[in-house]
Design a protein around this nucleic acid. Structure first.
Lengths: 205, 205
DNA sequence: ACGCGGTTTAACCATTTGGTTAAACACAAA
DNA sequence: TTTGTGTTTAACCAAATGGTTAAACCGCGT
C-alpha cells in the first residue's frame, strides 16, 4: 500500500510546493536542488528519489502552472455573454488568478523565452485562441454602431497586457507609487474595475 | 599608449556586444563566460583580463541597458506638449526603442526580480517619475471637460504595459497571430498608432 | 517477528564553471 | 633593439552542483 502520510502533507506535495516556490523566485537556472530539498524539509537523496532530475521536476511544475497562465479565454470568448460582459469577466478572472499567483507571469514568460516551441505547446496544446470569433463579434458590434473597429488580436493583447504587466514590473510599480505589498494588492484589486473601464471606454462609441 | 585597434572594433567593444547578446538571451544565470568569449572571438583568459568577473561584466551591461528601459518619461511629461501629444510621443518613442532592443524588457524585468533594490536604483537613480505632474495635468483637462478622470500612475502603467508586453510575450503573440519575425515587427510598427488611439479613445470625453 | 517502502546519513562522483597562472608571442612605440 | 601592452595557449584550480550509492533506520501492515 502507499504510505499516505504521517504528517499532514504527502512528501511529494511538499516537494512540489517547495520546487514551485524556488523555481518561481530564481528561475530554472538560478534554482538549486539543495534549496528545494531544504524548503521541502527533506534531503537531496529523497528529492531525487521522487523526481529523477531537475529538468523533470521543472517540467512538472511548469505543466502545472502553464494551465493557469492561459485563462479560460476560449470558454469566455465563445460564451453567450455580450462583448462588454466578456471583457469584464476576462479581466476580473485573470487578475484574480494573478493575485493568487503573482510570480506566474515572469515564470512563464522566461520559459517561453528559453524554450518557445515546447513551452507554447504546453500552454496552448495545439489550439490557438479563437481570435476569429472575436473578430466576428467585433464586426457585428461595429456594424450596429456600438463600438469602434479594432482587430480582435489587438483587443486581446491589450487586455492581457493591462492585466499582466503590473505583476511583471511589480517592484518598479511599488517603488514608483510608494506602496507596500498590501497596498499593491489593493491597487490590483481596484484595477479589476479600472482596466475594464479603460478598455470599454476605448472601444465604445 | 592605448593600443586602439588593429581590427575595426576594439576588443572591449566586441566583448560588450557579445556579453549583451548572451546575457539578454540566457539571463545572468544561464549565461556562460565561455559563450561570451566565443561570441566575441577571443578566449576566456582575455575576457577576464578585460572584465574581472561575470558579475562586473553583467553590471556593465545592465547599466548600459537600464537607461534605455526608462524612456525620457520625465522630459516628455514635463514638456510643453498637450497630453494627447505627450501620449503620442511617449508611445512612439518607446516602441521605437523596443523595436531596436526587443529583448530589453525581459532582461530588465528579470534583474528587477532578482535584485529589486539595486536594479531600481540603477534605472531610476533616485528620481521617481513625475506622476504628480501627470495628475495635475489630468486634473486640468478633466476640469475643462476634455477627458475622463484617471489616476496619473494608472495612465502611465497602462501606456507602458501596452508598449512592452507584446515584446515580452513575443513568441506567444507570433504563434497566436501566425506571424513571421518580419511581420511581427510590422505589427509593432503599426502598434505605435493603435496604442495611441486605444489610450486616447479611452480617456477622451 | 518480519518485511517493505519511505527516509536519513554521508560519502562519493563527474562535470561544469568561474577564475587564475605562466609562458610565449605579436607588434607598435620609444 | 628594447619595452610594454594586447593576445593566445594551455594547463590548472577550487568550488558548486546535479546526481548516485549503500548502509542503516523507522514505522506500519501483515
Amino acid at each position: 500500500m502507499i504510505k499516505e502520510n504521517k504528517n499532514d502533507k504527502s512528501t511529494e506535495q511538499k516537494i512540489l510546493e517547495a520546487a514551485k516556490q524556488v523555481f518561481m523566485e530564481k528561475g530554472i537556472d538560478g534554482a538549486r536542488m539543495q534549496d528545494i530539498a531544504d524548503k521541502a524539509g527533506i534531503n537531496k537523496a529523497l528529492l531525487h528519489y521522487y523526481f529523477r532530475s531537475k529538468e523533470k521536476l521543472f517540467e512538472m511544475i511548469f505543466m502545472e502552472e502553464a494551465r493557469k497562465f492561459l485563462p479560460k479565454v476560449t470558454s469566455i470568448m465563445v460564451s453567450e455573454l455580450t462583448l462588454f460582459e466578456k471583457v469584464e469577466k476576462f479581466v476580473g478572472e485573470y487578475i484574480d488568478t494573478l493575485l493568487q499567483n503573482p510570480l506566474l507571469p515572469i515564470f512563464i514568460l522566461n520559459e517561453i523565452n528559453r524554450n518557445p516551441k515546447e513551452a507554447i505547446k504546453k500552454i496552448f496544446g495545439n489550439q490557438r485562441p479563437p481570435i476569429d470569433k472575436v473578430d466576428e463579434l467585433i464586426a457585428k458590434l461595429v456594424k450596429k454602431g456600438e463600438i469602434k473597429p479594432i482587430k480582435g488580436y489587438e483587443l486581446m493583447v491589450n487586455m492581457v497586457s493591462l492585466c499582466i504587466f503590473p505583476f511583471l514590473a511589480r517592484p518598479m510599480v511599488q517603488w514608483v507609487t510608494k506602496t507596500t505589498d498590501e497596498e499593491f494588492l489593493k491597487l490590483m484589486e481596484l484595477r479589476k474595475k479600472t482596466v475594464v473601464k479603460f478598455v470599454l471606454d476605448s472601444i465604445k462609441k
